[in-house]
Design a protein around this nucleic acid. Structure first.
Length: 695
DNA sequence: TGATCCAGTTTTTTT
DNA sequence: AACTGGATCA
């Protein structure tokens, strides 16, 4: 196997396959390439069975990409190789040993929203006032405990005050309810395997024997449980290769500890350390500015990231008047790039908080520039989607009380709070699921409906099942009758969900409900299923980790936004914000544009934020502050040639210059929703734009 | 039971 | 500004 186009350090990292290895890989240093090549090298040169390799990545997306790359090098039969996130790896273990945890094989995973509503209900049942006891705090404490491997009885030992006592009580009850619901929460996916291994050395031994070669990506973002799991698995053969960059540790709020990577050399004996310090991604200007920022962190191991790339353009910095102005500046810059024939897929807009996407979205919409927003909230958190998923979960796991309560009266069936309460109490008394104790009334109708779905699910495809649910429950009919803009958009979302199940089936062949539910519980991002080709990407800096783009815009670089106001007074958190900023900067290959605004409407209030300290940390020689662009909002609208008088009707056919023929399925005061054929799908456009013609 | 209204709260980042 | 939850009334 030829190791071409790799530098000495990279080759060293690849060829040393035995024993513990630490790869300190700076941003853009070809880390993913090294990892995939190393996996290929193990299989091809060292005759390691792909079955014996375990590779852990941070996101499912990264896992899929890595798998594709390995399959590309070595062929289809390496597809069985275990490349996944910690969470899905944990799930695979629990699936295999579900009996040990007192679960049934059809257990489901509850998300953190469901955890929260479960905790709220527990507090209510225990007669605590949610104003005095914050359910979120309790959820976080429970989550943190699990990430520290503490069960209720362990937490009990730490009781120091009244609130803690309540937390412990809730924790006990929470665990009990998870069990009657036949479900696990997110943190269980990591904690349960460790409990299993601790109590069953033979099972641990099986996994140790099986996974003789372990590779962990983004090691700087591992938390305590993940650290323990890694350590247990690698103990026997010590062929553990971890990759990471302490400067890119950005998940401290979730319990990640960058010290795990700093301590790696103490944790294992005879560690081989390889430093990847050549950056292949960014221009000198971008890299130098990034270095300028990160060197302000006190708590840091000095490193020297360099590049042979061109000096490149200076980094643009624009201080705007307000957030609208900021969004319009971004859009006008994108238009300029479009004129230079830049692909939209080479452009990303990054921000600190999800809420910031809105202004950008509006501006892009007005100017008819296609985009996608990466982030879970936008899709899976919508009511109609959550309802639909709850139906699916309930069909798969009828013990899932959370899902049952969610949909038992959706659409309205005249089953009120009182009835639900009665069922809940009875279930509690009998220590059974709500579904099982239903025996009469309108509830029985509902139960029969679900039982019917369970029958149908045996012979229908996933998409057909979804269709059936929307139909038989009356969800579809209700929304159609409502016939408002709101209900239209809900219907569209449900259509989109079907296209997700469809593409899921296309991709993996016939899939079971189990597989699909697992996947969407772990892959929170609907965007991963769409193949939108040439669109601008909008996302938080956190989601951008591991990605790269030719052109990057970072918006909201203000004190209070980035760094976030919650962190301003805590030095360690400011350092994390700085690492986050470093991650944002190093996503850019060629062109980086920084923005902020003097005034910003936030939580209904006008805020005057000074420029971010991170901008002040960049040496002037890399910055271009003198932006001469005179930007006029009105001018852009005129420029995009909008004929506001154009009238439309629902169902009308139109022709788009890029997407071809489409049907109007929604009309707003200013915006049209148009369904185009695959792969474009449903697109929103401003009325009367000259790119659409009636036909 | 369900619709509506009002008051109070909230917003960091995510597998 | 937007969303939640609770209270009130039909």
């Amino acid at each position: 196997m030829k190791l071409e186009n790799l530098n000495d350090k990279q080759i060293e990292a690849i060829e040393n396959t035995e024993g513990p290895m630490l790869i300190l890989a700076g941003a853009g240093s070809g880390k993913t390439r090294v990892l995939t090549t190393k996996i290929a090298y193990l299989i091809k040169e060292k005759n390691v069975d792909p079955y014996s390799i375990l590779a852990i990545t941070f996101t499912n997306k990264a896992a899929n990409e890595m798998k594709e790359r390995v399959v590309n090098i070595l062929g289809e039969d390496t597809r069985k190789i275990q490349i996944s996130t910690f969470h899905s790896f944990g799930l695979s273990i629990i699936k295999r040993y579900y009996k040990f945890f007192d679960l049934k094989s059809n257990f489901t995973i509850i998300d953190s929203d469901d955890s929260l509503s479960m905790i709220k209900k527990i507090l209510k049942d225990m007669n605590y006032d949610p104003k005095e006891i914050n359910p979120k705090t309790i959820r976080n404490t429970i989550s943190n405990s699990k990430n520290e491997l503490m069960l209720p009885k362990d937490l009990e030992k730490f009781i120091s005050n009244g609130n803690y006592e309540i937390t412990v009580k809730v924790y006990y009850e929470y665990q009990k309810r998870l069990k009657t619901n036949n479900s696990v929460d997110f943190d269980d996916l990591l904690m349960l395997p460790i409990i299993l291994f601790k109590q069953n050395p033979d099972i641990l031994d099986y996994y140790q024997e099986r996974y003789r070669y372990i590779l962990i990506d983004e090691y700087q973002d591992t938390n305590e449980v993940q650290y323990k799991l890694t350590k247990m698995l690698s103990k026997k053969y010590q062929n553990i290769c971890v990759v990471g960059d302490p400067d890119q540790s950005i998940y401290g709020f979730r319990g990640s500890n960058y010290k795990n990577i700093l301590n790696f050399e103490k944790d294992y004996k005879n560690v081989k350390v390889v430093l990847l310090e050549q950056n292949y991604r960014s221009t000198k200007n971008i890299l130098n500015a990034s270095n300028d920022i990160i060197k302000n962190n006190k708590n840091r191991k000095e490193k020297n990231l360099w590049t042979d790339n061109v000096e490149g353009e200076k980094i643009k910095y624009k201080r705007c008047e307000d957030e609208k102005d900021e969004a319009n500046y971004v859009v006008s810059s994108i238009k300029k790039l479009m004129k230079e024939k830049v692909n939209l897929s080479d452009i990303a807009v990054l921000y600190r908080t999800n809420a910031q996407s809105r202004n950008i979205e509006e501006a892009l919409l007005k100017n008819n520039i296609p985009y996608k927003v990466i982030g879970s909230f936008y899709f899976y958190n919508r009511k109609e989607i959550k309802d639909l998923i709850s139906y699916l979960k309930l069909i798969y796991n009828p013990s899932d009380d959370i899902s049952l309560e969610r949909v038992i009266n959706v659409p309205k069936r005249g089953i009120g709070l009182k009835t639900i309460q009665n069922i809940r109490t009875e279930a509690n008394v009998l220590d059974d699921s709500m579904f099982n104790v239903i025996s009469g009334g309108k509830e029985l109708e509902f139960k029969k409906l679900i039982l019917g779905f369970i029958d149908s699910s045996m012979e229908l495809s996933l998409t057909e099942l979804v269709e059936l649910i929307l139909d038989k429950t009356g969800i579809k009919k209700e929304l159609e009758l409502e016939d408002t803009i709101e209900s239209q958009s809900r219907l569209e979302n449900l259509e989109e969900f079907k296209s997700i199940t469809k593409s899921f089936e296309d991709r993996y062949g016939v899939v079971s409900l189990a597989e699909f539910l697992d996947e969407i519980s772990l892959v929170s991002d609907a965007e991963e299923y769409k193949n939108m080709t040439d669109v601008v990407t909008l996302m938080t800096v956190h989601s951008a980790k591991g990605l790269e783009f030719d052109n990057v815009f970072i918006i909201g670089l203000e004190e209070g936004i980035f760094p976030h106001s919650m962190c301003l007074n805590i030095p360690s958190e400011i350092e994390e914000e700085r690492r986050l900023c470093y991650v944002a900067f190093t996503r850019a290959r060629k062109k980086l544009t920084l923005l902020n605004s003097k005034r910003r409407l936030l939580y209904g209030q006008d805020n005057l934020n000074p420029q971010s300290r991170f901008i002040s940390e960049i040496s002037d020689e890399y910055l271009d502050k003198e932006d001469k662009t005179i930007f006029n909002y009105k001018k852009t609208i005129a420029h995009s040639n909008i004929n506001e008088d154009e009238e439309y009707t629902l169902g009308e056919h139109v022709m788009h210059e890029k997407y071809g023929e489409g049907v109007i399925i929604g009309i707003d005061s200013k915006v049209l929703t148009i369904a185009f054929s695959h792969p474009h799908g449903i697109v929103k456009m401003i009325k009367g734009h000259n790119s659409i013609k009636k036909c």
